[in-house]
C-alpha cells in the first residue's frame, strides 16, 4: 500500500492528496476489470436480470447477518447469494416457467424478506449504506479482499472463459461438444453472485448491476471480435470509474451512482461509433 500511496501522491491533483481518495482510486481500478470481465458474459448470456436480482437479494443476506449478530454481514450475504444463484439455476432447469418469471419471483421474495427483517423496530436507516454504497470509506484491508477476488475471477476467466462463452452461444451445441452445460451455468451464476455481493457495500445494491452491464454493452456496440469486446469493456469501465470517482469528490455525490452516469455517457457515445 505504501508504494501505491507514493504513486498516487505524485498525481498533480488536489483530490489525489487524500488517503481515502487514494484508497478509492485503487479500488476503482480493481473494480473496473472485475466488472467488465463478468459483464461481458452476463450480457452474452442474457443474465442482466439475474445479476440485478442477486444484487437486490443481498438485502436478505444483510438481514440474516444482522440477526445472527455478525459485525460484518459479508459471509451471510455470500451464503445467501450463492444459495439463491444455485436455486435459480436449478429452477430454470426443472421448472417450465420462464426464466424471467423465476428470477422475478425469487427477487421479490428476497427483497421483501430482507426489508421486513431489517425494518423491525424501524431501524432500516442504519442499512441505507448498502443501498447507495460508499466507496470513499474503503479500507486497505477491504482492498486486499478485492485483490483476492480479482485474482480468483481472473484465474477462473483464464481457465473457464472458453467453455462459458461457448455455452452462452448455444447450449445444444455446447452439450453436443461434451461441455458440462449445467455445471458451467451454475458455476457462472455463483461467480456473478460472489462478485456482486462482495462489492455491494462500496457500490450500493441499487446501481451495482449497471456497473456490470453498461460498460460491456457500450463495448459491444463497437467491438467486432471477442477480444476487442472484453478489452473495450475493461477500458470503458476503468475510465468511467476514475472519472466518476473524481466528479463525485467535487460534487459530493454518491460515487457508485456517479460512475454509472459516466458509463451511461460512454454507452451513448458508443452508439455513435457503432460498427456497421
Amino acid at each position: 500500500m505504501t508504494f501505491w500511496y507514493y504513486i498516487a501522491g505524485q498525481l498533480p491533483f488536489e483530490w489525489a492528496q487524500f488517503t481515502f481518495m487514494q484508497n478509492a482510486l485503487l479500488a476503482v481500478l480493481l473494480f473496473a476489470p472485475l466488472f467488465a470481465l463478468i459483464g461481458c458474459l452476463v450480457i452474452s448470456n442474457q443474465m442482466a436480470f439475474f445479476s440485478d436480482a442477486i444484487g437486490h437479494a443481498a438485502l436478505t443476506g444483510i438481514a440474516i447477518g444482522a440477526l445472527a449478530g455478525l459485525a460484518d454481514p459479508l459471509w451471510a450475504m455470500l451464503a445467501f447469494a450463492t444459495v439463491l444463484a444455485i436455486l435459480v439455476t436449478v429452477l430454470r432447469r426443472y421448472s417450465s416457467a420462464s426464466t424471467d418469471t423465476i428470477i422475478g419471483l425469487m427477487m421479490a421474495f428476497a427483497v421483501a424478506l430482507g426489508v421486513v427483517l431489517l425494518s423491525r423496530g424501524g431501524g432500516f436507516a442504519r442499512y441505507s449504506r448498502y443501498l447507495i454504497g460508499d466507496l470513499l470509506t474503503i479500507t486497505p484491508f477491504e482492498i486486499l479482499r478485492l485483490v483476492l477476488l480479482l485474482a480468483i475471477v481472473a484465474g477462473v476467466w483464464l481457465a473457464f472463459f472458453n467453455p462459458l462463452f461457448f455455452v452462452c452461444l448455444n447450449r445444444s451445441l455446447a452439450k453436443a461438444r461434451g461441455f458440462p452445460v449445467w455445471r458451467l451455468e451454475t458455476f457462472f451464476a455463483v461467480i456473478v453472485a460472489l462478485v456482486v455481493t462482495v462489492t455491494i457495500p462500496w457500490v450500493g445494491l441499487l446501481v451495482i448491476n449497471a456497473l456490470l452491464i453498461v460498460p460491456a454493452a457500450a463495448s459491444r456496440n463497437m467491438a467486432r471480435t471477442m477480444a476487442a469486446y472484453v478489452l473495450g469493456a475493461v477500458v470503458i469501465s476503468a475510465l468511467a470509474g476514475v472519472l466518476g470517482l473524481i466528479t463525485s469528490f467535487y460534487w459530493g455525490t454518491a460515487t457508485g451512482a456517479t460512475i454509472v452516469l459516466w458509463a451511461m455517457l460512454f454507452f451513448i457515445l458508443s452508439l455513435a461509433f457503432r460498427r456497421r
Binding site: 452474452s44 472458453n162 462463452f165 452461444l169 448455444n170 459491444r220 467491438a223 471480435t225 477480444a227 476487442a228
Partner: peptide
C-alpha cells in the same frame, strides 16, 4: 443458431471457444 446478430463474435472466435484453451479475449 439463435444468436444475437449484434454479438461481437467472429467465426474464428466460435472455433476458438470450442477448441482452444487460451481464452478468446
Amino acid at each position: 443458431l439463435d444468436i444475437d446478430t449484434l454479438a461481437p463474435v467472429t467465426v474464428l472466435d466460435l472455433f476458438a471457444g470450442a477448441l482452444a484453451h487460451r481464452p478468446v479475449w
